[in-house]
Design a protein around this nucleic acid. Structure first.
Lengths: 126, 126
DNA sequence: GTAAATGTATTACAGGTGTAATCAATGAGG
DNA sequence: CCTCATTGATTACACCTGTAATACATTTAC
C-alpha cells in the first residue's frame, strides 16, 4: 500500500486535476495554495515517483508527471483505514459527528438520501 | 492541536474505555490486540503525557493515567481534518465511497436515516 | 541494611516527513 | 566549442514515529 504524506498529497491533488504536468507547472499550480520553494516541490515529486504514486514521461530534459494511483482509489483506501481506526469501521458515527457540529448542509443531506435510496434499491432486486 | 500518532492512539483507546489505569494495566489491556513490549507501551504513555493527551496521578511509585482529551473531541477534530483534506469538507462523497464498496449494512443505513430525520426536524423548528 | 525487583526517565536508532540546498548533467546562447 | 542556466538527483537536517534498551530511583524481600 502506497503511503502518501500530507505534503505529498497536495502535489497529487494538482496532478489529479490536470495531467500530465512538468515540475514547473506543478510549482505554478501550487503557488496559489502553498508557499513552497521550488526545490521543495521537486523533492516531493521525486519521493512520489520513488513510492510509485507518480510516473513520468521525458520531454527533452524535463519530465512530465502523471498519477499512477487514481484519486478514487486513494480516497477509498484512506477512508476505510480512517474509519476503521477511529470508528471501528462504521461510517454512520462519523456522519453523526458532522451532524452534531452542524457541518451538514442541504446538499449533503440530499446526497445521503440518494445514497440510501440507491442502497435500498440494491437490496431489493438482490 | 494535539497530534496523536497511530501507535499512541491504541493506548488512548484503552484509556478512553477505562480510566484511570496504571502503565501495567494498560500493557495488559493492550496484550490482546497488540504484541508490544512493555517498554514500548511505557514510551507511548510518556509521549502522550508530554503531548498533553494524558495526565496522571501518582499512586505510590506508580502512575495512574487518564485522558485529557475526550474520544469525542478527538474523533470530531480528526474527522473534520480528514474530510477537509480528502473530500474538500463534504462528508457525503466519503459515504458514497463506502456505499460503492458495499461497506454499508442495514444498521449503518438505519442510523443514517435517523440522522437525516433529526437534521430535517432541526431545520423545521429553526 | 543490602540486593533484587519494579516503575519511571532517558537514550537509541532507523525510517518517514517537511523543507530545502547543493551537485551533476544537459541543452541553449553566443 | 564553451559557458550559463535549467532540470532532475543527491544530500542535509531537524523532528516525529515505531520499537525498544539502558539508566536511575525507590520500594520490598530477605
Amino acid at each position: 500500500m502506497i503511503e502518501i504524506s500530507n505534503a505529498e498529497l497536495c502535489v497529487m491533488q494538482i496532478l489529479w486535476q490536470q495531467q500530465p504536468l512538468s515540475a514547473n507547472e506543478v510549482v505554478t499550480a501550487l503557488g496559489n495554495a502553498k508557499d513552497w520553494h521550488e526545490k521543495t516541490v521537486k523533492t516531493l515529486l521525486n519521493r512520489l515517483v520513488s513510492k510509485g504514486a507518480l510516473g513520468f514521461d521525458k520531454d527533452g530534459r524535463a519530465y512530465l508527471y502523471y498519477p499512477l494511483v487514481t484519486e478514487q482509489d486513494y480516497q477509498l483506501q484512506q477512508s476505510r483505514t480512517f474509519v476503521e481506526r477511529l470508528f471501528a469501521g462504521r461510517v454512520a458515527p462519523l456522519v453523526a459527528g458532522f451532524a452534531s457540529q452542524n457541518k451538514l448542509n442541504a446538499d449533503d443531506v440530499q446526497q445521503l438520501k440518494q445514497l440510501i435510496a440507491d442502497w435500498e434499491q440494491e437490496q431489493h432486486h438482490d
